[in-house]
């Protein structure tokens, strides 16, 4: 049984995957003296209408999105789903002529599997585009963290904190939502751990900058130490956000292969 990458995709495709699995088993068990399969023209027409609708909506999405990867990856999924649907139409025609037709059953199973696989490809492509949105926010935070190195006055620090706060809140919210979506327990845990570390380090970074600014402005001893401390915290936060970006791009397949 395929492992689906997110709970949304799993919720949509799992029931169909189960049924197709069931049909295949029955088909193999009953292949020789299988009973006649009833006329499937009606149910196939319903699949055909649903496929046309998905392709129409998908093409609209491809038209409007700025995500070049999605523009590239979606059309092959449409083709797969449409070709599979043609197989179902052929199966229905063959079964109408001969309800015992074994080739028709093969077409029926291949077509159903193709619809499942094509819809899964399409949903994964869409999901990957959603992940890229989260990664863009993470990269924005990574870039803004580097600004910490040039904060040298209290006014700068106030501005820096005011800008960093909302961005961090947005990033945390997006990652927490993403984490809830993942079906892979390890990935969820990795995101949870890294995000927690980043949240804990944020106030540490702000106070490290504050100490650096205070010492620098009074020309007291210890500027180097304060600078090293600020740098350490900044680098630790950056490493954790880079880890979050890495984990966000993992798919179930990567993890299993790695294992």
């Amino acid at each position: 049984m395929p492992v689906f990458h997110t709970k949304t995709i799993e919720g949509i495709l799992e029931p169909v995957a189960q049924q197709i699995c069931h049909l295949v088993i029955m088909h193999e068990e009953g292949e020789v003296d299988g009973k006649a399969i009833p006329d499937l023209t009606g149910p196939v027409a319903a699949v055909q209408a649903a496929v046309s609708n998905l392709v129409r909506v998908g093409k609209e999405t491809v038209q409007t999105t700025e995500d070049q990867v999605m523009k590239r990856d979606m059309p092959p999924a449409f083709i797969k789903v449409e070709n599979s649907c043609s197989k179902l139409v052929q199966a229905a025609q063959m079964l109408k002529a001969d309800p015992y037709s074994v080739p028709a059953r093969d077409y029926l199973i291949d077509g159903s599997r193709g619809i499942l696989s094509g819809t899964s490809d399409l949903l994964l492509t869409f999901d990957e585009a959603e992940v890229r949105k989260v990664i863009r926010v993470c990269k924005g935070i990574l870039e803004y963290l580097t600004v910490a190195e040039v904060v040298e006055t209290m006014e700068d620090l106030i501005t820096y904190t005011k800008n960093l706060g909302p961005g961090m809140t947005k990033m945390s919210k997006m990652i927490e939502e993403r984490q809830q979506e993942l079906t892979h327990q390890e990935h969820r845990q990795m995101l949870f751990n890294s995000l927690n570390t980043v949240k804990q380090l944020l106030p540490v970074l702000i106070s490290a900058i504050k100490i650096f600014v205070a010492i620098k402005s009074t020309h007291s001893a210890g500027v180097d130490e304060a600078e090293r401390n600020r740098c350490f915290t900044f680098e630790k936060m950056s490493a954790e956000i880079s880890e979050i970006i890495r984990v966000l791009q993992l798919t179930t397949w990567d993890e299993d292969t790695w294992a």
């Binding site: 169909v16 049909l23 149910p43 649903a50």
Partner: peptide, 29 residues
């Protein structure tokens, strides 16, 4: 959202199709 809804209706339609095809086979098994 539109894509998810469209994918859900494909899944439902495919489910119904497979169910009707399996119905005939079930008697046998």
């Amino acid at each position: 959202e539109q894509i998810l809804e469209a994918a859900k209706s494909i899944a439902a339609a495919t489910s119904a199709l497979v169910k009707s095809a399996s119905a005939a086979q079930r008697e046998l098994v």
